Amino acid sequence: MDVFMKGLSKAKEGVVAAAEKTKQGVAEAAGKTKEGVLYVGSKTKEGVVHGVATVAEKTKEQVTNVGGAVVTGVTAVAQKTVEGAGSIAAATGFVKKDQLGKNEEGAPQEGILEDMPVDPDNEAYEMPSEEGYQDYEPEA
């Protein structure tokens, strides 16, 4: 019985440690998101679009440190934060509304985080759909 109880105690310690790591990862992701939003706020009209992409990228980098179902929630929060940063930029006159959601080359930025393969159960990952990809044929 002692062996059984000791095993359960060790398992509990492992769960607590994993929860603490997840909590730490979420806190880091939130900190990076805040950094990115402050970065966007300090940019001029020309830099705002690039700044919004930076927020998304920093958040995406930190999301990889967070495991399990938390990833889905962090990704949703990050996307809403990026959308909010863009709205703030438009409201303050840093950028025109028609410039939001495009990178410096004018290509749409939507789907940055949505296409990231995420499995809350950590069982399997699927690649994003290939609808947006084109076949590449090298020139002879």
Rank of each mutant, 00 (worst) to 15 (best):
G106H: 01
A30V: 08
P120T: 13
E46Q: 04
K97R: 13
V71H: 12
G86Q: 10
V71D: 03
T59G: 04
Y125P: 11
V71F: 11
E137R: 15
K58I: 02
V95Q: 04
K97G: 04
Y39D: 01
G86V: 13
N65M: 01
T64R: 15
K23F: 05
E61I: 03
M127N: 07
K43Q: 08
S42A: 05
T54P: 03
K102G: 11
T44A: 10
K34A: 10
T59S: 04
T72A: 02
Y133T: 02
E20Q: 08
A76E: 05
E57H: 03
G67M: 06
E130A: 06
T92L: 14
K60A: 10
A19P: 04
Q134D: 10
E83W: 13
L8P: 00
Y125T: 10
E35V: 08
G14N: 01
G31M: 11
A27I: 10
E13P: 03
P138Y: 04
K58E: 01
K96C: 09
I88C: 07
I112D: 09
K102H: 05
M127A: 05
K60F: 11
E46D: 13
M127K: 06
D2R: 09
Q109N: 03
G36V: 15
T33W: 03
M1Y: 00
Q134T: 02
V95P: 03
V70N: 00
Q62Y: 11
G7D: 00
K32R: 12
T92M: 09
P108K: 07
A85N: 02
P108Y: 02
A78I: 02
D119W: 13
E137K: 03
G14P: 09
V95N: 08
E105R: 15
G68F: 08
G132A: 12
A53M: 01
K102V: 13
M5E: 01
A11H: 00
S9A: 05
A90K: 15
G14D: 07
G41L: 07
D2F: 13
V49Y: 03
L113Y: 12
E139F: 13
V37K: 00
T33Q: 09
K34F: 09
N103L: 07
A56W: 03
K96V: 07
K12V: 13
I112V: 15
K12N: 04
F94V: 04
K45E: 00
A85V: 04
T54M: 10
T81D: 01
G41A: 04
V37Q: 00
T22S: 03
P128N: 08
E57R: 10
K10G: 05
H50N: 08
E105T: 12
E126W: 07
D2S: 02
A29D: 00
E20L: 08
A17E: 10
M5R: 04
E137P: 03
K32D: 01
D121C: 09
D98V: 12
V52N: 00
P108H: 08
T59D: 01
Q79E: 14
H50S: 09
V48C: 07
G101N: 03
D121R: 09
E110K: 02
E123W: 12
S9P: 01
A17S: 04
K60I: 06
A89N: 01
V70G: 02
N122F: 11
E137C: 09
A140M: 09
I112L: 05
A90T: 08
V63E: 00
T44W: 15
E83I: 14
K23L: 03
A107G: 04
A124L: 14
K21P: 00
